[in-house]
Simulated assay, not measured.
Amino acid sequence: MSTTLLDRAPAVSTDQRTSLIGLTRKEIAERLQSDLGLAEKEARMRARQIWGWIYNIGATEFSAMTNIAKAMREKLEDWYTIPRAEIVERKVSRDGTRKYLLRFAPGVEAEAVFIPGVGRSGALCVSSQVGCTLNCTFCHTGTQALVRNLTAEEIVAQVLVCKDDIEEWPSGKDERQLSNIVFMGMGEPLYNLDGVAQAIDIISDGEGISISRRRITVSTSGVVNQMHDLGERTEAMLAISLHATNDELRDVLVPINKKWNIEALLDACRNYPGTSNSRRITFEYVMLKGVNDSDAEAKELVRLLKGIPAKINLIPFNPWPGSEYECSDWDRIEAFAEIVNRAGYASPIRTPRGRDVGAACGQLKTESVKRRASELRAEALYGDGQLPE
């Protein structure tokens, strides 16, 4: 394991310019019209140029945009920024997994994890919130109180940081290291649907980062009333954090089940836009010793998913300090998988990645929670950790 630990003092930005990261091409064009007085046609052309430099080439300075006249580049520099998120800490696992702790504002930190050798090439697990409200009892992230939603800019920033780190610019390389995006990091993506949807629009744009929507997966613990909108707005692949086959147990493991039970959740899955045998829903099932790993539960899982185009990811539980659960024994996981496989469902057992750097599924929790986020913000702004009278 290697670790790069940077200065942990919260940074305070005094830059009043507008960041272009996280804006759509249309929004950038509108800014150029209103701020710089460009005509609509020129604004659209300039927005397309800027977009290509930011998301295809990976430019971090307007001075690098050599197909734009120098005078225009100077105006862009006066009005806008194309910043990168601050990397507070970077850890590299023995298996090549990379975990980034990123700071977006004082007291606002989240983690992203790059996992090589997943999907076609590699997957980046991004966060959609700082902290979480769901309190899933097996998940370390759930023990961190929600600070706030991440903006589209902050979600896209996680992708840019990763692409910088793995040196994958321009975006149009045939042999990519980063081919998949999974919204399986900190937070519940469907409680931040606007930010997630706009980030997906940017990440999937064919003239920029250009990751296909079919290679973008959004995982939800079961926010049923937002699932159809997710499909309509993003066309993203859907993953469901299921983890139990009856409401009594799921009420404990995934408390949102008390609001939308398994029946309601599966009905929403059956109606998810675009679902088919070629666009199957992934059901995630963490294997907890003596809790949800019996043969009977494997058979019930098969019964519940009947008629839903699905695959089932069996996830060995990743331990974290203070957890009351243990991972199922390997032979028990394999026996569970065999029952599911015999029923015709693909049920890969997810190999734990990045455990040694706390980057495995369910382990993400930022160091910023050692003190309240409000205290961090106050200290950064006023020096003594106290708000002014």
Rank of each mutant, 00 (worst) to 15 (best):
C136I: 04
V126C: 06
N277G: 14
I166A: 12
T81A: 02
G185D: 05
A157W: 08
G122Q: 07
P106D: 10
L249K: 11
V340D: 04
L134E: 09
A110F: 07
P352A: 09
L178H: 07
A199E: 11
Y80Q: 02
V369C: 06
A43R: 11
I181K: 11
S2H: 11
S204F: 08
P170V: 09
E30H: 10
I211K: 01
R120C: 03
P388N: 10
S93A: 15
D7K: 06
V118W: 11
E167G: 10
T3I: 15
R279A: 10
E248T: 10
N261Y: 05
R176W: 11
Y272H: 05
F138C: 03
E338M: 06
A239Q: 03
C125P: 00
Q49Y: 04
E379T: 08
V254Y: 05
E334G: 00
Y285K: 00
G208M: 09
G383D: 06
K370W: 14
A373H: 12
E367Y: 04
Q226T: 05
I262K: 00
R215L: 09
V196N: 03
L301H: 02
G117T: 00
E248Y: 12
S93Q: 09
L160Q: 10
A110R: 00
A112S: 15
I315D: 03
N192D: 11
G383F: 02
I82Q: 09
G22H: 01
K41T: 13
S13F: 13
G187Y: 09
A310I: 04
W260G: 00
F283L: 01
Q33M: 10
R103F: 08
Q144V: 06
K173P: 12
